[in-house]
Amino acid sequence: MALVRITSPHAQGQNRTASVMQSVLLATVPGVVVMTHFFGFGTLANILWGGLLALLFEACALKLRKRPLGFYLRDYSALVTSTLLCIALPPYAPWWLIVVGVGIAILLAKHLYGGLGYNPFNPAMVGYVVLLISFPVQMTAWAPPRGAGEVPGLLDAVQALFTPAAYDGVTMATPLDVLKQNNSLLIEDLWAANPQFGRWAGKGWEWVNMAFLAGGAWLLYKRIFTWHAPVAMLASLALMSALFYDGGSSASGGSPLFHLLSGATMFGAFFIVTDPVTSAVSLRGRLIYGALIGVLVYLIRVWGNYPDAIAFAVLIMNFAAPFIDHYTQPRTYGHSKPRDNSQGGES
């Protein structure tokens, strides 16, 4: 065998980008299962349809950019993007909504910027926000959770997806929405008046969040990402809600537990905020990045125009990530303090 010339290191660890992506996909399973349990097969249908579209769009984009298809499709990154987007979409969304969302995410947010690793904004969240602004009706039509209404079956899911005009599903405001609209009832009374509230937060939502938390914990254990950003986000969100809890008055923003277990909190913390491409890079930077997302989520949820706010908060902080990086460069071995970049760095 001819001897090859390669630079060191010659040994390589077992980590592969594809396996990182696969782990992320796998970690969404508990969450998706629980969502299916409480909301029916809508989410699953979204994910499958979205996955198919994502592969298609990715292949087109790669073809246009003259990149080898097999090599890049096998990194699973398109599937991760579409899966995360489809989990965030309301179940029983029409097919075209998903086409638009996944198209925006893959083509606009990812490939226009140079593909995997070069996108400054989280593609799934870009897709989500574009849909939310463009199609507010479809984007806020959440099915009622099991226990608060009837859960549609598998056929309903397929029908809702492909013949949306013929599908007549029941929708119900999400708990975050209800809380937001409330301006007269004490939290306690609100809980009693609305069927969608459960023990700490929304019915079903509590368990969905718990399931995503479990998936995230597994990823942490697998060292796919570090704890810094998600923990900082959850902590700052909890802190904000504790500060403005207001004892459960009619003006209250909701309890910390309510915020931690409502909407996309856990999903966002472990699957969106942790996206490495668009977040800050240093550990210190990730702490700041996560914490500010938590603050923004609370601000938008309670005082903003949208009931949930993960997507907006994450996108805003995507903007800030390079800025945070600039000021949080770690102290290199043998340097007495982190390099002072505040002087503009143009020496």
Binding site: A11, S77, Y118, T226, P276, S282, D325, P330
Partner: peptide, 29 residues
Amino acid sequence: ELPTPPPAQACIRCGMCAEACPASLLPQQ
């Protein structure tokens, strides 16, 4: 035993390099 390295993929800035760096550098940057 020491396979020829596969072609490089895109950097996803996962930060594993920064965690491994004994000089506390930011290899991905």
